[in-house]
């Protein structure tokens, strides 16, 4: 994934279609991550209200730190996804010009001769642009991996929070609900992130 391979085998339009799908999924994941962050804040407030649930409070604060990291990673993901869309659209525009020039070159041997250098330069430029796209895919994949890592740790924390909730003497039901909500949201986000990695690999390939 992190090499400078040139993506091949699909037209820029087909690639744009895939990148648009990835971007739509990213928008969805980002919305979920922001919700998780709010839930983690809510867990801290609940712990404070429950006073005696010291263990829960510690876990909740760690959870909040992690979800802040997740939100940060999501912001990067959004920015990278924007850049990738821009880069792929740019390749598509370039490929259109290249295609028209190539058609002109097929009209006569004279035209072919006149355009040979131009076509060579245009193709070289396209390869550069495609390399740039590959680099952006790789950066996106790296950020996705870090988001998966954060979500996994957050998932285990949510389980710990559930155990701590069961020890609490006050507000046990409330603490239990908030940790269950966190756990189930994290269970929801993980497969989305993993599916995204797979889609991204398909584009890069």
């Amino acid at each position: 994934m992190e090499t400078d391979d040139v993506p091949s085998g699909s037209s820029p339009a087909a690639m744009l279609e895939q990148v648009v799908l990835v971007n739509e999924d990213i928008k969805q994941v980002v919305r979920n991550a922001f919700r998780i962050n709010l839930m983690a804040l809510n867990a801290i407030l609940m712990a404070r209200r429950a006073g005696s649930a010291a263990g829960f409070g510690i876990v909740a604060r760690e959870m909040r730190e992690l979800s802040e990291a997740l939100v940060h990673s999501m912001r990067t993901l959004r920015a990278l996804s924007d850049e990738l869309l821009y880069a792929v659209t740019y390749v598509m525009r370039h490929a259109r010009i290249e295609h028209v020039l190539a058609r002109a070159a097929t009209q006569s041997t004279r035209a072919q001769g006149n355009l040979r250098e131009v076509l060579r330069a245009t193709a070289a430029r396209r390869i550069d642009l495609e390399r740039h796209v590959a680099g952006q895919c790789a950066a996106l994949a790296t950020d996705l991996r870090s988001a998966v890592g954060i979500s996994r740790v957050a998932d285990s924390l949510a389980h710990m929070a559930k155990i701590e909730a069961s020890w609490a003497s006050d507000h046990r039901a409330g603490l239990d609900t908030v940790s269950e909500e966190l756990a189930s949201s994290l269970r929801g986000i993980l497969p989305l992130l993993q599916a995204l990695s797979t889609k991204l690999e398909a584009i890069h390939r």
Partner: peptide, 19 residues
């Protein structure tokens, strides 16, 4: 225009599904 398509397309994609 053709020149600004990358910019328009990515801005639109941020707000809605271009499909």
């Amino acid at each position: 225009g053709l020149e600004i398509f990358p910019s328009v397309f990515s801005t639109v994609s941020n707000e809605c599904n271009p499909n």
